[in-house]
């Protein structure tokens, strides 16, 4: 039995219509990603009880909490803009939930101190929240969310407002904190694909209010359920199936740049294992440090290929491994 179940959640909004089912397992770190305006934050709000669905139910440990007010759900949330209480200092912010539950002052103080050290901000207790930097504020927000001992922790794009380096450091900390609490289930929203891949147990892809796919990062990358998921989770090329003689009734084939071999000299390749395309013109290249991503033109089609060196020749041949191809019909994976 999953920890959190969203059953047939439906609601219409101006930009999209939410309509999905989703399960979250106990103790897992699930990330929801999707393009902007797809309903990720809304979904989080519904889980937290800050918004209610028109239809459908939310089950927590099998209990229906759809009409339970947010105060009683035991679900905490961390917001993108931190939403710290400006009239209180760091410690008071963190101790707030305990104060609500009438925990004694001395206990609150020590619990807050513990949480501060968990997020690596020991000694910040008396600081005014308006003097904190972005990274510090977010960690305080995290500590505060954990202070109510929630069963589910929601994070709504918590790192979007921070710079890239800080993001990388903090996302690891978020994962670390999740790991340190064995029973904590975390649902994380981001639009940063890399972030999602780095720290999640499972990823759910939302598009236009609908769930495209929910699976482990590996499965999503290797075996995306839809073309959209394929594109959303990494670079790749989609070509019309007409270009090739295939026995499979697909209309599109898809492959990742790293599954393409780029050769300038003739290469002995087994045409059963590879699709061979000659006379590909090198149009563009992107240097990633560890390799180049080349943009090639084959008979008017654009193909992305990975290469460890930059080709000397203008025209190259590419070899696409057939067993790495993904086949799609009407956008759905039929491989």
């Amino acid at each position: 039995m999953s920890k959190l179940e969203l059953q047939k959640i439906q609601k219409d909004y101006p930009e999209f219509s939410l309509d999905l089912n989703l399960s979250v397992n106990e103790g897992e770190f699930l990330t929801i990603i999707g393009p902007s305006g797809s309903g990720k934050s809304t979904l989080l709000n519904i889980i937290a009880g800050l918004d209610s669905p028109a239809h459908g139910s939310i089950l927590l440990d099998g209990r229906d909490i759809t009409s339970t007010p947010p105060q009683k759900r035991g679900i905490s949330m961390v917001f993108q803009d931190y939403a710290l209480f400006p009239s209180m200092n760091v410690e008071k912010n963190i101790a707030w939930a305990m104060k609500i539950r009438k925990v004694k002052a001395s206990e609150r103080h020590s619990a807050a101190a513990q949480l501060l050290s968990l997020v690596n901000l020991s000694g910040y207790g008396k600081r005014k929240v308006t003097t904190l930097s972005g990274g510090e504020a977010q960690r305080v927000a995290l500590a505060r969310a954990l202070s109510s001992d929630p069963s589910i922790l929601l994070l709504d794009e918590p790192l979007s407002a921070l710079d890239a380096n800080l993001r990388r450091r903090l996302r690891d900390e978020v994962r670390r904190i999740h790991d340190s609490s064995p029973s904590l289930t975390t649902v994380y929203v981001t639009h940063d694909r890399e972030e999602a891949f780095a720290i999640s147990d499972r990823i759910a892809i939302i598009k236009d209010g609908r769930l495209e796919m929910a699976d482990t990062p590996e499965n999503i990358y290797r075996n995306p359920a839809t073309l959209f998921c394929a594109y959303f989770t990494g670079e790749g090329t989609a070509l019309s199936a007409d270009l090739f003689n295939l026995s499979i009734p697909a209309d599109t084939i898809f492959f990742r740049p790293e599954d393409v071999l780029v050769k300038e000299e003739p290469f002995f390749a087994d045409s059963d294992s590879y699709i061979i395309l000659d006379e590909c013109e090198v149009i563009s290249s992107e240097y990633l440090g560890r390799c180049y991503i080349l943009g090639l033109n084959y008979k008017g089609h654009r193909i992305l290929a990975e290469s460890s060196v930059f080709p000397q020749k203008r025209h190259v041949s590419i070899y696409i491994s057939k067993n790495r191809l993904l086949f799609f019909k009407d956008g759905v994976n039929i491989s």
């Binding site: 105060q71 949330m77 710290l84 609500i100 202070s147 109510s148």
Partner: peptide, 14 residues
Amino acid sequence: NRRILLAAYTLGTS
């Protein structure tokens, strides 16, 4: 900032 209020709700504040 409305989110500050929402944060309070999730922390159990009436």
